[in-house]
């Protein structure tokens, strides 16, 4: 009923939106949001490919991949936010351009 290409187009659009956010924004929390969006788009891609092309064969590779991506995204968000809050306490800023004491 729904062709595979629709899901792939949707995930491509979300991915490019996420990449746009991660590149243009200077606030690190915003960048993290963009990264989460990219991970979600990749998840939809994986699930769509698995469901349409591999699920009738009976292997669970796609689902496992998606679960591991969930776990990795959650761990990365937790540690990233802890780092951002800790950096804010020291430097009083979360703008990525201003966190540059390692520069030069």
């Amino acid at each position: 009923m729904i062709p595979l290409s629709w899901f792939l187009v949707f995930s491509a659009v979300l991915f490019s939106l996420g990449a746009f956010i991660a590149i243009t924004r200077r606030n690190t929390i915003f960048i993290l949001m963009g990264i989460e969006l990219m991970l979600n788009a990749a998840n939809i891609n994986l699930l769509a490919f698995w469901r349409y092309l591999h699920a009738p064969a009976g292997d669970m590779d796609g689902l496992m991949f998606i679960l591991i991506v969930f776990v990795a995204a959650a761990a990365e968000a937790a540690v990233g936010l802890a780092l951002i809050v800790s950096a804010y306490r020291r430097r009083k800023t979360v703008i990525a351009n201003e966190l540059d004491t390692l520069k030069g």
């Binding site: 062709p3 187009v9 491509a12 490019s16 009738p56």
Partner: peptide
């Protein structure tokens, strides 16, 4: 950046449309 993102999106869509299996429908599980 928006130009770069749009070019990337266009590239992905192009690769998608020239792929023969792109309109496959689901088989029941």
């Amino acid at each position: 950046t928006s130009i770069v993102a749009l070019i990337t999106l266009a590239g992905i869509l192009l690769a998608l449309l020239t792929w023969p299996q792109s309109s496959s429908l689901t088989l029941p599980l």
